[in-house]
Nucleic acid binder design. Structure first.
Length: 109
DNA sequence: GACATGACGGCAC
DNA sequence: AGTGCCGCCATGT
């Protein structure tokens, strides 16, 4: 039985390079609407080498999870390396990089 | 088994 | 428009 974490990981892995998603969208995708916290929590136990957790930001485009990376700047650096642009206020330009899982997010896991 | 915690989000004030 | 509170669900103690 697939654990709750694996579902989150599988979904996050589907976020293409140069794109980001939000905890809320992922939670909703897992029928856990309103429980976005669970997503971040799951990522906390995720293997950063196999799960692009850096591509998950809060609904405001802020890197709320940077403190959970090896280095606080790692998240931003990795995103920039993928071509993601940031707004003057330091948040991700969601208008430009938000990935919407356009019904292509394979719900079969 | 109950209580507190947590990488969020929405709504009320 | 900014701040605060409550809700949501899985895990750890």
């Amino acid at each position: 039985m697939t654990s709750f974490y694996e579902r989150v990981y599988e979904l996050v892995r589907q976020i293409p390079e140069g794109n980001v998603s939000t905890y809320g969208i992922i939670a909703e995708r897992l029928s856990l609407r309103g429980a976005a916290r669970m997503v971040g929590w799951a990522l906390n136990s995720a293997d950063l080498s196999t799960v692009p957790a850096h591509r998950v930001v809060n609904r405001n485009g802020e890197l709320s999870g940077k403190q959970h990376f090896p280095s606080p700047d790692a998240m931003r650096t990795m995103l920039e390396a993928e071509g993601i642009t940031f707004l003057p206020d330091g948040s991700v330009d969601l208008e430009r990089h938000l990935f919407r899982f356009d019904r292509d997010g394979n719900d079969a896991i």
